[in-house]
């Protein structure tokens, strides 16, 4: 397999608290990886390593053969569960700010023609996520689902190669969540993204991913629960022939067919 993201024996600990231990994996470009596991098992920490806001204590993280920059950058877009959008900017400005940072070197702001062009580009993306009717609204006027749509459009304006989603739909109603799944899958296909998505919802993990990782601790010391870290205990390639096995391995009934593969 031709790997795009490669992790070798990565370990991360905060003081004595070992979070991730001996974690290795290869991900090809264009995969949709969903990360599941109990709370506090290091899924989010893993995402932070990819994002660059946290550094690994040992091991190496490579993206396209080069070490991952230890600072957030344009190649890696992110959508958090909340606080992803800027409350003081309108929907359109929230997306255009990505272009403005790049072209408005001094003030991060564009004027006149350049601003119009940036807005037009933003409007196209906002149409793609279904927010074309809310261009001039402020985030506080949007519902939770619409805010996450905005956060997605905002991340995509920089054309990132990797999209990191940290429980993006955790706070949404089930009905809205379903619409958001379709949207994310559509964007993933159209933009050729490599997606890493942390979720609490196993069903969601199965439905969306082409690959599902389960984070858990391999060893457990009941007297010192912080002694050992988690790693990827199951790495399931969710193509058709693996599905029955995968479902069985995780004790899941078979009706959670991954839509990414079915369609």
């Amino acid at each position: 397999m031709n790997s795009f993201i490669e992790l070798n024996k990565v370990t991360k600990h905060y003081g004595d608290n070992v979070v991730l231990e001996n974690l290795s994996c290869n991900v090809a470009e264009g995969e949709f990886v969903t990360l599941v596991g109990a709370s506090g098992c290091g899924k989010s920490t893993f995402l932070k390593l990819l994002l660059g806001t946290e550094g690994a204590n040992s091991g190496e993280l490579l993206m396209a053969g080069k070490p991952i920059v230890q600072e957030p950058s344009k190649e890696r877009g992110i959508v958090f569960q909340k606080y992803s959008v800027f409350p003081h900017l309108s929907v359109r400005e929230n997306v255009a700010i990505g272009t403005e940072f790049e072209e408005g070197k001094w003030w991060g702001r564009l004027f006149g023609e350049a601003r119009k062009r940036a807005f037009k580009q933003a409007d196209e993306l906002l149409t793609a996520v279904g927010l074309e009717h809310a261009l001039n609204k402020y985030p506080n006027e949007l519902s939770g689902g619409m805010q996450q749509r905005l956060a997605l459009a905002q991340a995509l304006i920089k054309k990132p190669r990797v999209l990191l989603l940290d429980e993006p739909f955790g706070a949404l109603d089930p009905g809205i969540r379903k619409d958001m799944h379709e949207l994310v899958l559509g964007l993933w296909r159209d933009y050729g993204l490599t997606v890493f998505m942390v979720t609490h919802d196993l069903k969601e993990g199965f439905q969306l991913g082409t690959r599902l990782w389960v984070f858990d601790k391999m060893r457990h010391d009941p007297h010192a629960p912080e002694r050992f870290g988690a790693t990827i205990t199951y790495d399931l390639h969710l193509d058709q022939k693996n599905l029955p096995f995968a479902a069985e391995a995780l004790d899941i009934s078979g009706d959670y067919l991954p839509t990414a593969i079915a369609s």
Partner: peptide, 13 residues
């Protein structure tokens, strides 16, 4: 929120 500053960095600011 820390998230906003991180987001702004991923947008290239």
């Amino acid at each position: 929120p820390r998230e906003q500053l991180i987001k702004a960095q991923t947008l290239g600011g």
